[in-house]
Design a protein around this nucleic acid. Structure first.
Ligand SMILES: [Mn+2]
Ligand SMILES: [Mn+2]
Ligand SMILES: [Mn+2]
Ligand SMILES: [Mn+2]
Lengths: 218, 218
DNA sequence: TTATTTTGTTAGACACGTCTAACTTTATAC
DNA sequence: GTATAAAGTTAGACGTGTCTAACAAAATAA
């Protein structure tokens, strides 16, 4: 069994790996807010457990075993977030710090029960896919709202940034997953979009925001 | 903030204190399955944090602060057990090991939400009282089923032993909290009771079992 | 291509929570 | 009331996860 600490390293390696392809000691160090020498020594430990390929001065890479174990922790994280939102009434902006702790609970029954009560959800409250029991993840191909054209109507499928501030901002505009958004106009200069959705027929979405929203064709 | 480990020591001190009055290093050592020298050094640490009164060779005692913090962990434990049973469909025999982990989650909102969803329960699934937000516990005075007389009808209010085996045994006899039990006869020799409850009109309860069931007059 | 900056490693330290071995104090038995 | 047993403490060690200081390698800039 991996320790609480090891689990957090595995998860960070996994998510950084998906975001940036290559993961360096420095990236991990910054993400976990842990100094580089500490990261190096943990990488050697995880390498000894066959969870990470480690060679001095080379980028870090999870082994297949490491990827699987990381994905299973992420599964627990995302199931928890979904449970907190759907079955406990939390807002999507509140759940991450709680899930960060709950993900380390050792009890298959606990998470199986969440999964069952939720009806075997495929995505978490932010639209990220929930890995299956074997650690397999099915990534749906979404596109950024910012890449859409005038006249298109799209459905909001996921958020890229899940910071509390950003999610609170979306709440204040009544923007949530599943929302149908029609693009009315795009300002060439700065990419600002004029859109309509729900009862809001004359809203503005800045490029900073549309870059962080993933959509699919409605 | 207290560590995960410190929390488990506090909780053990609290429950042993209620069961036996005085707590010795040896008791704690056996309860936590941690060797005595380790316990001694932790007691010094908790004493430095004003959570325990510690003097060499004297019985251990929680300070008021220590009692309060212990009770708040127990609150989280029991709310969790109740939530697992009432809102997630677990059996009362399954929840303890999960609650043992969940009780260490640091999130007031998480437990407040459980409390609210449960309708501010006063007791856990085993009939033990849930301490309030200030760590105050209201103990109801129940009596052992074994101390009841022939002809009495009592309501099952709590179980003393919460081992999985005992709870499974009760499940197999369809014995659960709230059950009304009528005492039809008591064998003087070994204390075996003849009782009726629900649709079971001719059941036998051994003294070993009736000693572990707490009831109130119906 | 050499100098500088950034990234990464090594060495050594430390807090935490655990252990065993050895010793001391207190309790129990005779 | 001494002898023995049980309980408790002290000393010293160890694994985990963290740090800082010093050094080395790789990347970038001049
Ligand atoms: Mn999250
Ligand atoms: Mn975590
Ligand atoms: Mn319990
Ligand atoms: Mn616990």
């Amino acid at each position: 069994m991996n320790s609480y600490t090891e689990e957090n390293y595995l998860k960070a390696l996994y998510t950084l790996g998906n975001e940036r392809g290559e993961v360096n000691v420095n990236d991990l160090s910054r993400k976990l807010e842990i100094k580089m020498p500490t990261v190096t020594s943990m990488m050697k430990k995880l390498a000894a457990k066959k969870l990470v390929y480690y060679e001095s001065y080379k980028p870090l890479k999870l082994t297949e075993k490491g990827k699987r174990e990381a994905a299973l922790i992420i599964r627990k994280h995302r199931l928890t977030e979904m449970f907190l939102v759907e079955n406990m009434g939390f807002g999507w902006e509140e759940v991450h710090p709680i899930a960060e702790q709950v993900e380390h609970i050792q009890s298959a029954a606990f998470f199986d029960k969440m999964d069952q009560l939720l009806g075997y959800p495929k995505v978490d409250p932010h639209g990220s896919p929930i890995p299956d029991r074997n650690g397999k993840v099915i990534w749906k191909e979404y596109q950024k709202l910012s890449s859409c054209k005038v006249g298109e109507t799209v459905r909001l499928a996921a958020v890229i940034n899940t910071s509390e501030d950003f999610l609170r901002f979306l709440n204040s505009r009544e923007i949530h997953l599943g929302l149908k958004v029609k693009i009315k106009a795009i300002e060439q200069f700065d990419g600002t979009m004029k859109v309509s959705y729900a009862k809001r027929t004359d809203e503005t979405i800045s490029h900073v925001v549309s870059e962080r929203l993933l959509v699919e064709k409605a």
